[in-house]
Design a protein around this nucleic acid. Structure first.
Lengths: 120, 120
DNA sequence: CGCCACGCTACGTTTTTAATAGCAAACCAT
DNA sequence: ATGGTTTGCTATTAAAAACGTAGCGTGGCG
């Protein structure tokens, strides 16, 4: 059984286990959000499909993240493959705005990086 | 200079550097979202204030995350201490809904965990 | 039976995070 | 100017997580 941060018990960022900190602890693991995001755009997906979509993820980590996401009720497995749960869908919906914002952010970051390089 | 994922260049989850994947790469580092969240509720905050607020973060990691967040234009440093930038504020605003949702999620997760324990 | 896709597991290496100690610089009252 | 404090961080050693690759066991199919 996967070990996930449980709200109400000590987690990173909060000894009292504030839900947001438990969530950050869970999502702040490499690939956690990426898997959820990628799964959502392909579901239902088999383990290997998901692995290909993620391009560079190793099976060990994918397996671990999937176990955690399942434990956290965000993902489940059906005969057709892995799918997001209702809860997972809700979380995904909250992540969507980040996708749009990331584009704006990306413009800022890359412009500045280019600018800095030109300065020298 | 801190190494952060640059949209448009290969990052975890996307060889082409999709902005959302670059963002996930950045935020999917331990403490990244927690630091941004915590900073927002205390800013302006000194390094040590932030460290205390985060309860269990080590100075090395805090320093690294701060360097990355600054590099990513989300945080900056003033005479008063560290503060979020406009961009960082925008991102924080997008994170806020997660705080509310986390409470609902937390209820689900803990209830099920308790239920499972009672079953045995 | 042979062949293939699937869901993982194993394992050796590299990277990241943790935990703790402590240093240099700025500030501050005496 | 001197001793004490706070601040921002670096150094170091150890543990944990992630990577990359290989491959095993199972189940379906011809």
């Amino acid at each position: 059984m996967a070990k996930i941060p449980i709200p109400g018990t000590p987690v990173r960022g909060s000894r009292s286990g504030a839900p947001i900190m438990a969530l950050f602890d869970l999502l702040g693991r490499r690939w956690a959000m990426g898997v959820l995001w990628t799964l959502h755009e392909v579901e239902p997906a088999t383990f290997r499909e998901l692995q290909e979509r993620c391009e560079t993820i190793s099976p060990a980590v994918l397996n671990k993240r999937l176990a955690e996401l399942r434990e956290a009720q965000l993902v489940t497995r059906t005969g057709e493959g892995y799918v997001t749960t209702d809860l997972g869908q809700e979380l995904y919906d909250l992540l969507v705005p980040l996708g749009a914002w990331a584009k704006i952010w990306g413009r800022n970051v890359t412009e500045d990086t280019v600018a800095e390089n030109n300065e020298r």
